[in-house]
Amino acid sequence: MKLTVIGGTGLIGSQVVRKLAAAGHEAVPAALSTGVDLLTGAGLDKALEGAEVVVNVANSPTFDEASLDFFRTSMTNLLAAGERAGVRHQVVLSIVGVDQVPELDYYRAKTLQEELLQQGPTPYSIVRATQFFEFVNAIMSWTSNDTTVRLPATRIQPMAAADVVDAVVDVATGAPLNGIRDVAGPDVFTLDDLGRITLAAQGDDRTVVIDDKAGMFAVVDGDVLIGGPDVRLAPTHYRDWMQSAH
């Protein structure tokens, strides 16, 4: 089967391409570096030629209000190009709880992307994943100094990028869901606790302080970032991943 992976050179996309190829599929990475511009549509028709499935893991270059335009334009261009190419399945990677946090521009933008896909002409699947283990240090860096890391006590259920890849490949090589699949890590943490676990594993003696106004996840209420009753749990535990990563 031929699959075109949009954003196929990034953290998730490059691993999706490798995993599909290892399973015997023809996986074509499409990104700016391969001559594909989602915003102008340049190179899209060529990249989708002969593809049965499009896997869209492309990300907006910013997380602010401009991300709305990025996802609106890129999804519209991709659906149109897919229809021209006879694509039979469009897959998008999204975020668990994405439609429950309208305060975040980026989450509103991803919700718009999902809506455009659902209203589009092609059978589709949406894979909603929780936050990646790989981004925990970046999240902490937004609200930290030399002695203190300030984090809200937001409940999250993070997962390894490699497990996200497995979930995306599984859906992309199956029949279209015409719906949403939630995937999440096996453990639920508060973000401040996750910070403490991370610093301890890295031998970092900074103190984590609960600050319910710190960082982008401060606006998240309750359990919206936790997988629902039908969530599929990934196998990798954060503490195990931390040990193997260092």
Rank of each mutant, 00 (worst) to 15 (best):
L48K: 05
V28T: 14
V57S: 07
E65Y: 11
A58G: 06
V53K: 10
A22S: 14
L39Y: 01
A30L: 05
S60K: 03
A47N: 12
L32S: 13
L38T: 13
G35L: 07
A21T: 15
G35C: 11
L44A: 01
G24E: 06
G43R: 12
V53N: 09
V57I: 14
F63T: 15
D37P: 11
F63C: 03
N56K: 06
S60C: 09
D69L: 09
G35W: 13
A31V: 04
P61V: 10
G43M: 13
L39I: 14
T34I: 03
F63N: 12
V55K: 07
T40C: 09
D37L: 05
L44T: 01
A47G: 09
A21G: 15
A31N: 11
P29Q: 04
D69P: 06
D45K: 03
N56W: 02
A42C: 00
K19H: 08
T62E: 05
P61F: 04
A22E: 12
V54A: 12
P29C: 03
H25T: 02
G24A: 10
N56Q: 08
A66I: 04
D45T: 11
D37M: 10
A23E: 15
T40A: 06
V36S: 04
D37W: 11
A22D: 11
D64G: 15
L44E: 01
A27M: 09
L68V: 11
G24W: 14
F63L: 15
L39S: 06
E49W: 02
A51P: 05
L39N: 00
